[in-house]
Simulated scan of single mutants.
Amino acid sequence: MNEILKDWGSVILRSAIILVVLFFFFWPVKLEGSSMEPTLNDGDIICMSRFFVQMGWYEKGDIVVFQYIEQGKEKVVLKRILATEGDHIRLLADGSVEINGDVLQENYVEGPTNGIVDMTIPKSTVFVMGDNRSTSFDSRNMGVISCDDLTGKVVLRWFPINQMRTY
C-alpha cells in the first residue's frame, strides 16, 4: 500500500510542477479579433508568460496581455507596448508615431494611425496600441494601462490547425 501511495504522490507532485511551469511561463491564450493583424490573427494561439511581467521584463515593442473591463465584461486584451513611463508620445498628422522626438519605424502596422495623442507616460503605466490601427481599441481610447494590470507577455505564437499550410 505504501508503494502505491508513493507512486501516486510522485505523479501528483510532477503534475503540479508541470502545471505551475505552464501557468507562469507558457500559458496558452487563443486570440479573438483583428486588432493585432497582420502580426497576430483571429484564432491564433499564443503563449504568454506571467513570470516576465511579474519580474518587469517587458519593454517597448513587446506584445502584452492585460484585462480590460468594457461594458461590465472583463476581456483579455493583447496589444503592443509603444511607450513606457517617462516617455513622451505624439501621434503626428501623417499617421506616424513619435516617441521622445524620434519617429518609430513600424513595419508591422496595418491601417492609418489616427487620433490625437501628445503626452508623457505617467509612472508605472504603459501606452499600448494594436498593430491594425484602424480597428484597434487601445490607449488612444482607453488611456494608459497600469503595469499592475499586465498579466502576461507574449513569448510564443503558433497557428491553429485549420490555418496551417500543407504542401
Rank of each mutant, 00 (worst) to 15 (best):
M1P: 05
I4W: 13
L5Q: 01
L5K: 07
L5R: 04
K6E: 15
D7S: 14
W8Q: 06
R14G: 08
S15D: 13
I17L: 13
V21M: 15
V21F: 15
L22Q: 10
F26K: 10
F26A: 15
F26Y: 13
V29L: 15
L31K: 01
G33V: 01
S34T: 15
S35P: 06
E37C: 06
P38T: 04
L40R: 06
L40V: 03
D44L: 01
I46T: 00
C47H: 07
C47Y: 08
C47N: 09
M48V: 14
M48Y: 08
R50N: 12
R50M: 12
V53Y: 07
G56S: 12
G61W: 09
G61V: 05
D62V: 02
D62L: 02
V64G: 02
V64A: 05
V65G: 05
F66V: 03
G72I: 10
K73H: 12
E74C: 09
E74M: 13
K75M: 03
V76Y: 01
L78W: 01
L78H: 04
L78N: 06
R80V: 12
E85R: 13
D87W: 02
D87C: 06
H88K: 07
H88R: 11
I89A: 07
R90T: 10
L92K: 11
A93K: 08
A93Y: 00
A93V: 05
D94I: 03
G95M: 02
E98M: 14
E98V: 09
N100R: 02
G101D: 04
G101P: 10
D102W: 04
D102Y: 07
D102K: 10
N107L: 03
Y108H: 07
V109C: 02
P112K: 15
G115N: 08
I116G: 04
I116F: 14
V117F: 07
D118F: 14
M119F: 11
T120Y: 10
I121S: 07
I121C: 06
K123A: 14
V126I: 09
V128Y: 04
V128R: 07
M129K: 10
D131T: 06
S134A: 11
S134C: 03
S134E: 14
T135V: 14
S136Y: 11
S136A: 13
F137L: 15
F137W: 12
S139D: 06
R140Q: 07
R140S: 06
I145G: 11
C147G: 11
L150V: 09
V155C: 04
V155D: 08
L156T: 01
L156Y: 14
R157P: 00
P160Q: 07
Q163N: 00
Y167F: 10
